[in-house]
Amino acid sequence: MKRDRDDVIAVAGLTKRFGAITAVDDISFSVPEGELFGFLGPNGAGKTTTIRMLTGILTPNVGAVSIDGIDIQKHPIAAKMQMGIIPEMSNVYIELTAKQNVVLAGRFYGMHRKDVEERTDKLLQQFELSDRKDDRVEGFSKGMKQRVLIASALVHIPKVLFLDEPTSGLDVHSQRLIRAIIREMNDAGTTVFLTTHNIEEANTLCDRVGIINRGALAAIDTPERLKQAFNETQSVEVAFDKPTDIGEIERSGLVNRTERTGDTWRFYTDDPDALAKWILSFAERRKLSFTTLSIEGASLEDVFVTVTEG
């Protein structure tokens, strides 16, 4: 497998079949050291199967994965020692306390009891769980359990962190806290591989994103470059102070398609500047006032929808 010196994750020709179904179809990519990489895709696209193969939980039919230069199929234990993993369908042991959960994880990675206990106390303080560290996890909220899980994945200071939907179903406070922790770990040099349904999360957090669709890698680049590549989804967003017939705008010859959300209209166009000027003159003629007028570039969500519906 070809691997640049700084690639922490290198994936070559990865394929996984379940009977007649090909869940992941010949995907190849690499993630350099220190990058925060987002992995997006609709439900059933192959995200979880991919992350399970990257983390050695599932064996691919074809292809290879190396973590920091270690082939995970040949040396699974050595490769896993480099990782912190939060699988999607994962949970903490509710019968144990928060501290016992994190200490248990640290000891699986070969940490000495004294070191792991010190590191656990520090992490639980950082995750705002210090005052509950000796309580059984049974009574914790979903957000608190997720924080315990992430602390368990970070306890041995992994070189690469895999997170499968880490903020899914959490309250805003927990989401923000977890995003801040992911960013902090990444700033400290940890390579992060993040799968998420939350496009905005990927947009704000990730250095690069890959989009998987029907098992194949459909796009991979920085969020900004992906948006530029899909600039046919530029639009002008307009809301007027009173109801009006927008048929004339649609017939201007500048609009590709129209979407309505409440009293706001979104006109997709190849030339947002010309369309905005046209709408200004339209409003002047009709003596309308604007409550909203903005030019929108392609969003990552637009890119995602275009790629996965195409």
């Binding site: 983390t55 939980i57 234990i77 896993k80 699988p87 369908m89 994962s90 042991y93 699986f108 990675y109």
Partner: peptide, 14 residues
């Protein structure tokens, strides 16, 4: 059932 098994598999164990 509790969702702890996959995490267990993710640890460096066989």
């Amino acid at each position: 059932r509790a969702g702890t098994y996959e995490r267990l598999l993710s640890f460096p164990v066989t």
